[in-house]
Design a protein around this nucleic acid. Structure first.
Length: 223
DNA sequence: TCAAGGATCCGCT
DNA sequence: GCGGATCCTTGAA
């Protein structure tokens, strides 16, 4: 995916990101997912954005060039993958909330299980890992990466991936445009999830975008 | 150094 | 529909 696309205003870039491919291709194997759900986060004025405190150690890459990965931990448990947007100096990013698995489903299941087991081990529940394994093994493909924390779990991504250039075809983790001629579903927009604390208008702006009626959209049974 | 709270998911009801 | 798990990041002192 070209950097120019991601250098545009974040909401426009977010539209272009829908349908694109998220690819992890390295010694662990090849995984591909079609991006079906994203959220736009603006600059320091956006009270829901990590950039609202200005530049910090954690969010520094948001202030850099577009097309770079920003991965952070939420709720002490889940990693979230973001794509930096807009020209350097303008802090903005797009949260990848869900992808529909295209290739490497076995790898995604394996990493989902590994992460679930690790999480629960810390909680002191050794028997749970086996249960989680069975549950994930029977999960339909469209549920393997149907949420921000699930995308990173399925792709084996954590904070160490912050800074990776997603526009570089040689990167282990990258974005690729949708295959030419691929038909894309209508785009629906809704308010962002989990940002009530930001207050008006930031909590109500329709900056969550997803492909209509796609089964891989997060919580599609609920919203 | 501290206290507060969060861009979530899962299992149980 | 609800609450627990879990720990990093932040601003204040």
């Amino acid at each position: 995916m070209s950097r120019e696309i991601l250098a545009r205003p974040t909401l426009q870039a977010a539209r272009s990101l829908l349908g694109a491919r998220l690819v992890r291709d390295d010694e662990t194997g090849r995984r591909v997912g079609r991006v079906v759900e994203v959220e736009a986060y603006g600059g320091p004025e956006d009270r829901a954005s990590h950039a609202r405190f200005g530049r910090t150690t954690r969010n520094a890459v948001m202030f850099g060039p577009p097309g770079v990965a920003y991965v952070y931990l939420v709720y002490g448990m889940y990693h979230c993958l973001n794509v930096v947007t807009e020209p350097a100096g303008r802090a903005a990013a797009i949260l990848v909330r869900a992808v529909a698995p295209v290739e490497g489903l076995d790898l995604m299941r394996r990493d989902r299980e590994a992460r679930a087991a690790a999480t629960r081990r810390r909680a002191g529940d050794p028997l749970w890992a086996a249960t989680a394994g069975r549950r994930i093994a029977s999960l339909p493909a469209e549920r393997l990466a149907s949420g921000p924390g699930l995308v990173t779990a399925a792709f084996g991504i954590d904070r160490s991936w912050t800074g990776v250039d997603l526009c570089d075809p040689a990167s282990a983790l990258r974005l690729e445009s949708a295959p030419p001629g691929e038909r894309r579903a209508a785009i629906r927009v809704t308010p962002r999830i989990g940002v009530a604390y930001a207050g008006d208008p930031w909590s109500t702006l329709a900056w969550r975008l997803h492909l209509a009626d796609d089964l891989a959209v997060s919580g599609s049974s609920r919203r």
